[in-house]
Amino acid sequence: MKQSGNSKQFAKKDGEACPRGRPREFDTDTVLTSASQVFWNHGYHATSIDDLCKATGLLRGSLYGVFGDKHGIMLAALDHYAEGSVARLAERLNAPVPAEEALRNALLHYARVACALTGERSCFITNTTLEMQPGDEELRTRVAAIQRRMATLLAASVIRGQASGAFNSTLDEKAVGDFLLCVMQGLRVLGRVAHKEDALIGIVDVAMRALV
């Protein structure tokens, strides 16, 4: 997807106009991927607009012209990252294997990733949630929507497991979906300080036993 801005606006804010007065064009997905990496590595508050300009290769006016301000860039970057994260979770949960195996593999993925990432990086969504200020209602709403999507996917996996007889049919799938989301988030947080994969795999096994 391409976005373009007004070259006069860029010249006013950045002291640099686009060649021959043409609007500056850039690929939004590429920009947001770069921006999410900066926020992921440094956190929202420690990230400056200059950091974002350097990472994206864009002028300040170009970023402001499309996203409004640093907070707007953060929201757009989080949305962009979440789309990929939710899609990958759906792909793992819907793998052509028994529901219980797909669910366990999905949870194991988060356990292994949590161990592989450094304590500073962890997960972009988790880091953003932990750093979120109480009054940031717009970000809270975004994070809540992402969590709902993930919990819904997990609940659907539980329903499939119940239909096949692998999971306890009396379990409330919504409550279990929320429980599994807590497990996923917990693995990510615990992985920031405890990089022992066996311990995190043990947590996954306990979670799976709770479903039978």
Rank of each mutant, 00 (worst) to 15 (best):
Q3S: 06
N6E: 07
Q9F: 14
F10I: 10
R22E: 10
R24Q: 04
R24K: 04
E25T: 07
L32E: 01
A35L: 13
S36Q: 10
Q37L: 07
N41A: 14
G43N: 07
T56S: 07
L59Q: 06
R60K: 15
R60M: 05
R60D: 03
G61K: 04
F67D: 00
G68V: 11
D69C: 10
I73R: 01
D79S: 13
H80L: 07
H80R: 14
Y81C: 02
Y81P: 01
A90W: 01
N94T: 12
N94D: 11
L103S: 04
R104M: 09
A106C: 14
L107V: 03
H109R: 05
Y110H: 14
Y110M: 06
A111D: 06
R112I: 08
V113D: 09
G119R: 03
S122K: 03
C123E: 02
T128I: 00
Q133W: 05
E137D: 12
L139R: 09
R140Y: 04
A144C: 10
R148I: 10
A151N: 06
L154T: 11
L154W: 02
Q162M: 13
A166Y: 01
A166T: 04
F167I: 00
T170W: 06
L171V: 09
D172V: 02
E173V: 15
G177D: 05
D178S: 11
V183R: 00
R188Y: 05
L190Y: 08
L200R: 06
I201K: 15
D205S: 11
